[in-house]
Design a protein around this nucleic acid. Structure first.
Length: 742
DNA sequence: GAGTTTGAAACT
DNA sequence: CAGTTTCAAACTC
């Protein structure tokens, strides 16, 4: 019955150790560090089979999942207690949650405590990571199929004294099985329960949000990674700090450090819960839930960071978060895409920068298709890493998994548009799976044809007409091009510029992106269903007659956007959004917007952006984002090159960020257009906003500033769902304080 | 890899 | 603006 861990770790519980319930719980599962693999599993059920034995059971996930589900159900009397099979009652689970919270705090403390031993820290972290993964899984509701639960482990591991009460609280009905003091128990229990419930509810309720949020998290990770020295913990801390610190600070004024911040996460939550519990009114409970949800979302993010931080800790013995796990970062690194195609001397046009969901899509596609890859991924990584400890590997895998996770959720829930960030995953994937032909192919594509690295095959146009993709994209032809008699080279700059000028004179928007994408709304081109981002449309529309807008012949389709009223296509079946669908209910605002944007100089029809309408696929009710997204299979498969000219409008997206690419010679004439487009983001923004929802599609890792509006009804959730983790946090912050004050 | 299909670009 | 031609990508075999 007594696990070694229990003896060692659960000192505070001594009082309650004797309780049958407690013992029972302890007996259920020895504490085991959970491997990050779970995360992967979470997003890819298929991968379960391939899980290495190394990792502790998927059961945990199952348990957690069930746990969350239950929590959800809790509100709903008709909850299904498949979990009853798990020997832990709901209350127990609640207790576990509470324990978990405590554990988290403890873990955090320890992990960031300089004095803490690495091994210990890593263990803690591992658990945390596992939890995190589990939670994610739960959110996704993947059924792991295993009843086994680690929740116990939480209890056992819990270093918080609070755990005890929580365990006691297991008697939800107020009856203490142990005979423990009911008063204390009840109170504690209520707190715990609330906490647990809230968390659970949050998890389950916000499953959608989570899905979306994870990308955000990923972004956050990326951000962290980018800040090589910045620790994830710090990031988390900052996030946390934004939260109603008041409460926590009041209690822990001294907590200013990262550690404190993390602690605050849990502590605050508890405090809030406490307060809520004290307020017995149902209304309060509701509020509490929302608050807790907020916390939860926060916590989730924090966990990610925490994990990272932990990982760092492992890597950097002694130095907290001093250095970020580069390995993780590398894969996640948003800028990776840029690396691919950066070719010195080659100018990059806005169009070129514009898009490129494809790579990322491909990446996703591959990953999804082969569940094993994801799973295997962590292992190789671990092996690659110098890390000797399994935990290290674990962290590594976790990290990578988290990175993938970002993408997966998006895919699963809805097709999220891809960003540069995704491209990076692509790289990662490639790195780890170089063996597969697909990857190779992709690599070639990305390397040679990537957005910035278009390759043309012109024979008669001399690459000085829009026929030439390179030219159209505003880039010089480069080695990979198979063009003949090419004049689109720096050597012929004058000619190129002159030609461009000529073309522009004929059509000022000739070099403008054909598809304007909101950075946030980039549709995924992968195999997943897509939706057209509300803000993204082909400016001029297509004219397809035979392809039904289902092939790349269609510029709209190629661009990953739905057809609009601007299109003159026949028999439109654009997976990203059919013309007819769009026409049915497009707001006229769009038109205004377009006109304002100046893109419509050519008197192009206004773009219509209503994903919902366009997308026949029912949106997920819970998440605003989901609502917007169409679940259309992603058209672009691995091979797709980026569409000719797409512009991602957004803070981070390629368009402007793309300028980072050296754009030496390229067509200075462009500047005019560039200016135009630069204005676009803002102009477009209204469109985005107008769109019932910004297509959750995207996760622009790089765009912290992306303008976006959270859907009206979702206070917390909406904010959470948005891509940029920071952004989300900020949004949530305002609401949060008010809630906490309750 | 060659040939066909397709639709945008260019031209009239 | 509409019709035709040119062109190169996308696609098929």
């Amino acid at each position: 019955m007594d696990t070694p861990q229990k003896t060692q770790i659960s000192t505070p519980l001594s009082k309650f150790e004797d309780s049958p319930v407690f013992n029972y719980i302890n007996s259920l599962s020895p504490i085991k560090p959970v491997k990050s693999i779970h995360v992967t599993q979470t997003f890819n059920p298929l991968s379960f089979a391939s899980l290495p034995s190394i990792f502790t059971s998927p059961h945990v996930s199952l348990h957690k999942e069930s746990r969350f589900l239950r929590s959800n159900n809790r509100t709903d009397p008709s909850k299904t207690d498949s979990q009853e099979g798990n020997k832990l009652s709901t209350e127990e689970e609640v207790a576990i949650d509470g324990a978990q919270l405590c554990d988290n705090s403890a873990v955090l403390q320890e992990s960031f405590d300089p004095g803490v031993s690495i091994g210990e820290a890593s263990l803690e972290l591992t658990n945390e990571s596992s939890r995190f993964a589990i939670e994610i899984q739960s959110t996704l509701k993947y059924d792991c199929g295993s009843p086994i639960c680690d929740p116990v482990a939480y209890v056992t591991e819990t270093k918080c004294g609070s755990v005890v009460p929580f365990a006691q609280g297991t008697s939800e009905k107020g009856v203490s099985e142990d005979g423990v003091n009911l008063d204390g128990i009840c109170q504690t229990y209520q707190k715990r329960e609330t906490t647990g419930c809230d968390w659970d509810n949050l998890m389950s309720d916000t499953a959608d949000l989570l899905i979306f949020s994870s990308p955000n998290d990923s972004e956050a990770f990326r951000g962290l990674f980018h800040k090589s020295l910045d620790s994830g913990a710090r990031f988390c801390t900052s996030l946390i700090s934004q939260f109603p610190q008041t409460i926590e600070q009041q209690k822990h004024p001294s907590l200013q450090t990262e550690e404190a911040g993390e602690l605050m996460t849990t502590n605050q939550t508890q405090d809030i819960v406490e307060n809520k519990c004290r307020a017995s009114s149902p209304a309060d409970k509701v509020d509490n839930e929302s608050v807790s949800n907020l916390y939860r979302g926060l916590r989730r993010r924090c966990l990610d960071f925490e994990t990272l931080g932990a990982r760092r800790l492992n890597l950097d013995t002694g130095s907290n978060c001093s250095s970020s796990g580069d390995k993780q970062l590398v894969p996640v690194k948003p800028g990776s895409d840029s690396l691919r195609c950066v070719l010195p001397g080659i100018g990059l046009h806005l169009n070129a920068l514009a898009i490129t969901p494809r790579d990322s899509k491909n990446f996703k596609h591959e990953t999804l298709s082969s569940g094993t890859q994801k799973i295997s991924f962590p292992i190789p990584t671990a092996s690659i890493l110098p890390l000797t400890t399994g935990q290290e590997a674990f962290f590594e895998s976790l990290t990578s998994a988290s990175a993938e996770r970002e993408m997966d959720p998006a895919e699963n829930a809805v097709e999220l548009a891809e960003d540069a960030s995704q491209a990076s995953p692509d790289l990662v994937n490639e790195e780890f799976n170089q063996n597969s032909p697909k990857k190779k192919r992709r690599r070639l594509e990305s390397a040679g044809e990537g957005e910035a690295c278009k390759r043309c095959n012109c024979k008669k146009s001399k690459c000085l007409k829009l026929y030439c993709e390179c030219f159209a994209a505003g880039v010089y032809c480069i080695e990979p091009c198979s063009c003949q008699d090419c004049f689109n080279k720096p050597i012929h700059e004058d000619m190129v510029l002159a030609t461009r000028k000529q073309i522009e004179s004929r059509n000022p928007l000739a070099f403008a992106p054909k598809v304007i994408r909101n950075s946030d709304s980039i549709p995924e081109i992968g195999d997943e269903p897509n939706k057209t981002p509300a803000s993204a449309r082909h400016k001029r529309g297509c004219n397809c007659k035979k392809s039904s807008c289902l092939k790349k012949y269609c510029e709209c389709y190629q661009g990953g956007v739905g057809c609009s009223i601007n299109c003159r296509c026949e028999g439109c079946k654009n997976a990203f959004g059919r013309k007819d669908a769009e026409t049915e209910g497009e707001p006229e605002e769009e038109t205004e917007n377009c006109e304002k944007s100046g893109l419509d100089i050519t008197s192009q029809k206004s773009e219509i952006f209503n994903d919902e309408e366009q997308n026949p696929v029912p949106a997920l009710p819970t998440t605003p984002l989901q609502l917007c997204r169409p679940l259309v299979p992603l058209p672009f498969s691995s091979t797709g090159k980026p569409p000719r000219s797409f512009v991602t409008i957004g803070s981070s997206s390629g368009l402007f960020s793309g300028q980072r690419y050296a754009k030496p010679n390229i067509l200075r004439s462009q500047t005019k257009f560039e200016k135009q487009f630069q204005t676009l983001p803002e102009d477009e923004m209204p469109e985005i906003l107008r769109g019932s929802c910004s297509p959750s599609t995207v996760i622009k890792t790089t765009s912290p500033n992306s303008k976006r509006i959270s859907p009206p009804h979702y206070d917390l959730g909406s904010s959470v769902s948005h891509r940029s983790g920071r952004k989300l946090i900020l949004q949530s912050i305002p609401s949060f304080p008010s809630l906490t004050q309750h």
